[in-house]
Design a protein around this nucleic acid. Structure first.
Lengths: 219, 219
DNA sequence: AAAGTACTGGACAGGCCTGTCCAGTTCGTC
DNA sequence: GACGAACTGGACAGGCCTGTCCAGTACTTT
């Protein structure tokens, strides 16, 4: 939630020894923040160094070159977002509406799924075939998990595919648009979304449970 | 559909007189192509000039500077995409499924709605507050038109809002993901999407009419 | 205490892109 | 046929960013 700290600014961590001012992780964190905030093009060694108040040469101790850093960012994305979404889709649920609520956790809990990162990667993919291939693989894995979720709840295959896409792409587009809604505004729309996504109505208990989760995470 | 022609390469247009090699419109077309292909950062005066085989100085005859060009691109977007989507949402329809099909025209017919351009603008908006403000205004206008569409077909206000968002954001996300589907694959999913979007089933005639439209446009 | 390890800072070269200046070209007009 | 208007080309300066080189610093090991 807070801005990423440098290792040296985090009192919980051991102080850096010797002449060391920043760690490889600090470079990665700073790069990630830049990627999310301004896109790949704005991930510049010079900028990151200036922000951390270290000289650029330090960077080349930890990374071969800028591309090496960008590869690490892409790897980080692969290891986090897709895994989280698939896990939520696979989570056990008594009803399809509850299952959808599990997926919604990703949209509420930034620790689970970082949608700003997801969009930064999508932007990047539009400019790089290599990144695009990685992205497509991730999307496919997510859609497969969602389709399987609907099939477990007895939707016929074609409808399961259609509904998986609707829920996935709607969430994508929704995040993309990045409305400045408050949590309560979002929560008030949830029952409506669930009807559209599943064709059935969520129980009051399911809605209450989801709202509790959302308020706990955000509050 | 085809790559944008330079004025001088288009046999339908009057030949350029004097020492003129390219027009302001040629610069705009080339910039638009670059914007759609690689994002704002790749709209470079030097690149456009090279591609058109003209020197960069020519550019500064037609435009004050690079920002001036980018402003023109943003203006172009405002004048095309949002207007088209609102018009399709407003189009008369006997049923809500038919109304949704009207909206789908935007996703099928690139002359109506250029979604690559839309995404290039969205990318850009993430990096520029000014562009973001313009984008948000466009999104709001589109959502209002879609919400009104559902309300005309007797959905209660809250559900109309939810469904407007589902259809709009799903299409956004869908386009973003840019699956390599064939037209026939896309068309086969349409009845399923319609159920999810509206809660009711489209008639065979509506589906047939939409398929005809799609095949005519694309074929 | 000397030598090694793990970094950091500052200077340099080079590439890429923008914006400006000005001379040159090709037409229309008087 | 001289003149100006509408453009274009080439050269230049300057900013920004990357990657390299190397000397310097602060611990660790022997």
């Amino acid at each position: 939630m807070t801005a990423p700290l440098l290792h040296r600014d985090d009192p919980d961590k051991d102080p850096l020894i010797g002449n060391v001012k920043v760690t490889r992780q600090d470079w990665l964190n700073a790069a990630l923040a830049a990627l999310k905030q301004g896109g790949v093009e704005t991930v510049k060694v010079a900028d990151l160094a200036a922000r951390m108040q270290v000289s650029r040469s330090s960077f080349y101790w930890y990374f071969k070159n800028r591309t090496d850093l960008l590869d690490a960012l892409l790897q980080h994305w692969q290891d986090t977002n897709t895994a989280a979404l698939v896990q939520q889709a696979d989570a056990p649920a008594r009803t399809i509406t509850e299952a959808c609520c599990n997926v919604f956790h990703c949209n509420i809990d930034a620790r689970l799924f970082d949608n700003r990162l997801d969009f930064a990667i999508r932007d990047w993919a539009r400019r790089s075939d290599r990144v695009n291939a990685v992205l497509k693989a991730g999307d496919a894995a997510r859609l497969d998990a969602l389709t399987a979720m609907f099939e477990r709840h007895d939707y016929p295959p074609l409808e399961a595919t259609a509904r998986a896409r609707v829920i996935y792409y709607m969430q994508l587009g929704y995040d993309d648009a990045d409305l400045g809604e408050t949590l309560e505004q979002r929560l008030s729309m949830v029952p409506g979304y669930l009807v559209a996504f599943t064709g059935s109505t969520a129980s009051a208990e399911e809605i209450a449970a989801f709202n509790d989760f959302a308020r706990t995470v955000t509050g």
